[in-house]
Design a binder for these strands. Structure first.
Length: 395
RNA sequence: GGAGGGGUGGCAGAGCGGUUGAAUGCGGCGGCCUUGAAAGCCGUUGGAGGCCCUCGGGUCUCUCGUGGGUUCGAAUCCCACCCCCUCCGCCA
């Protein structure tokens, strides 16, 4: 296919070149001889013949290009050779476990029992309002949510991440560029009337901040901390994690996003992971870090680490944050480039993303791990700085 | 939502069917001048892709918001879409 495309391309280039030359001659003939000049007429005919041949070949080339682009668009990023082998979550390599799992001298409650007892989570009315997998958060939990967001934003800001409150309704190219399209179209809410889509993560909006541009090398790295609501259809997850707010269609999240030079992306990945761990540690959530196997990476990522929080009611670790090095995959699709030196041609940057705080799941981890016998929940010191008491419910 | 105006090279800004891949100014780069610099003067200066090659270039195509169309020939004419500005209306 590619060979035929190249042949056609060359042929069409030649024809166009010929036509450009003939066109010039036509002009000269018109000037000297006028429109009755026989030379003028024969040249015009020659040009018309070239045009006819072009009209015949061009659609075939366009079709081949479309086909080839479509194939290319569906290809995933090349996995990092160090990513572990394997197809599924089960093949992930556990890198480390951090923090002490709580030892309860009583029967711990799950987050929904705690939430309902204190009037913090209301799911039935939400289901009536919006359907399954929606929730109202109320009271102290809302205050904790805001403290979580502020804590994450302040932490990241000190590390050079610029806070961003981005659009959450975006056009198709943003989703294509970040690699959610064509592969994960089923996960995305669509607003057909306006040809807009609701983002499943602010990663999509942040990545587009430097699309279609060529930055100077000195401008890199660029680091952003996006705060937004996220929307996910959760198609294909029917029946999974149906209890509580673990897997819902709408949640808030603070997301890190970095634009870096290719040589720096490995270090940046470590840096993002380190920040995630620092945040989890400050929130006093026990967690483990896993290295995602190649088969579970998704299209954009070359390497991915997840931090999984210990969830007492499930007696297992569940994904809380995730960070990916997408190398040049998104940059290529978004045309996010930079000049290695002022004279150099622009080349693709590397982009990386990572969750700073996924609010809903963080609340679950906090509620369950920090609960006391009386059903109260102690608040980590890091959040107390943002106006919360030592424990909730507030009396 | 209604009515106008407009999107041209890093920036500003001309061009409005053929010699314009694009005037001019600013900026950038090189040089002259200078002890050094400024000023001045001279020169130079977009991007993507294909082919050739003595690796420095040569050559061709595409590119004036995006996509179509008209024409022998389009930055220039027509259509659709996107974006920006001004005025009116509406609204958190």
């Amino acid at each position: 296919m590619d060979r035929r495309r190249r042949e056609l391309n060359t042929r069409i280039d030649e024809l166009r070149g010929e036509q450009n030359r003939v066109s010039e001659q036509v002009e000269r003939a018109a000037r000297s001889g006028g429109s009755d000049d026989p030379e003028f007429r024969s040249l015009r005919e020659a040009s018309a013949a070239l045009k006819a041949e072009l009209k015949e070949l061009e659609p075939e080339l366009a079709e081949l290009k479309r086909e080839q682009d479509g194939l290319l668009a569906g290809l995933p990023n090349l996995p990092d050779p160090e990513a572990p082998d394997g197809e599924t979550e089960a093949d992930a390599a556990v890198l480390r476990e951090v923090g002490e799992r709580p030892q309860f001298g009583f029967d711990p409650l799950d987050h929904l029992e705690l939430g309902e007892r204190h009037g913090w989570i209301e799911m039935e009315a939400a289901a009536k309002l919006s359907g399954s997998r929606f929730a109202y958060l109320l009271g102290d939990l809302v205050i904790v949510e805001i403290a979580l967001v502020r804590f994450a934003l302040e932490t990241l800001r000190r590390e050079g991440f610029e806070p961003v409150s981005p659009p959450v309704l975006v056009r198709e190219p943003a989703l294509f560029g970040t690699g959610f399209f064509p592969g994960e179209r089923e996960m995305i809410y669509e607003v057909p009337k306006d040809e807009l889509f609701l983002v499943g993560t602010s990663e999509v909006s942040l990545a587009s901040l430097h699309a279609d541009s060529a930055l100077a090398a000195e401008e890199l790295p660029l680091r952003y901390a996006g705060f937004s609501t996220c929307f996910r259809r959760e198609a294909g997850a029917a029946g999974r994690d149906t209890r509580g707010i673990f897997r819902v269609h709408q949640f808030d999240k603070v997301e890190m996003f970095s634009f870096v030079e290719p040589a720096a992306s490995r270090d940046e990945h470590e840096r993002i992971l380190a920040l995630q761990e620092r945040i989890l540690t400050a929130l006093e959530i026990p967690y483990r870090v896993v290295d995602i196997p190649v088969g579970d990476l998704g299209a954009p990522a070359a390497r991915k680490f997840d931090c999984e929080a210990w969830i007492p009611s499930q007696e297992r670790y569940r994904e809380l944050t995730s960070c990916s090095n997408t190398t040049d995959y998104q940059a290529r699709r978004l045309r996010a480039r930079y000049r290695p030196s002022p004279e150099a041609s622009p080349v693709e940057m590397h982009t990386l993303n990572g969750t700073a705080v996924a609010v809903g799941r963080s609340l679950i981890a906090l509620l369950e791990n920090k609960q006391g016998k009386d059903g109260s929940v102690s608040v980590p010191a890091a959040l107390q700085e943002f106006g919360l008491p030592e424990s909730i419910p507030t009396r």
